[in-house]
Amino acid sequence: MKGQKYMNPYLAGFLLGLVLLGTIYVTGRGLGASGAVKSVVLSTVVKVAPRHVANTPFIKSYSEEHPDGPLKDWLVFEVIGVIIGAFFSGVISNRVGIKLERGPNITNRTRIIAAIIGGAFFGFGSQLGRGCTSGAALSGMAVMSFGGLITMVAIFGSGYAFAWFFRKLWLK
């Protein structure tokens, strides 16, 4: 069983732009992703280790600003939607299944470790940069935010700058 072809990128981009535009029109804000991870993770830390939180200023101020927790967080709901939408898309295009994608010269184990490390970098960077590719770069472009656009340039610039060093992960 082979999955179906992907959508034309320009058509997909146009549709994504309309989703973003609709979101901005209705809610006055753009899309995001890393904020949801942040909400779930930090709220868990607050629940699991309340004493520790008292000594960690960043989590403390976050939980004071978001007293309702992840169940009333806009981005958490949005990401639940992303999971549903992506799964639905995978089902209709026949792409659902337990799989692991990796470069041709590395083992599955290396791929998983690299994904975790990469995720950690991205998680850290998204907090420092106040948003990820969707929240800062994409939504920032729609509203012409200077901060969003320089974050975007930094993400892709650094990706290109380091691509050579990690080519063994991806290329033959």
């Binding site: 990401v79 299944g97 337990i98 998204s126 940069g129 969707s134 290109y160």
Partner: peptide
Amino acid sequence: LGGAIMGIGFIIGGFCPGTSICAASIGKLD
């Protein structure tokens, strides 16, 4: 700086947060 760190994360991990959630949703372990 945050963007630069995210770029490193992108090239090592192969995803960004939104896309990794998409991938996980259809069963990609990475």
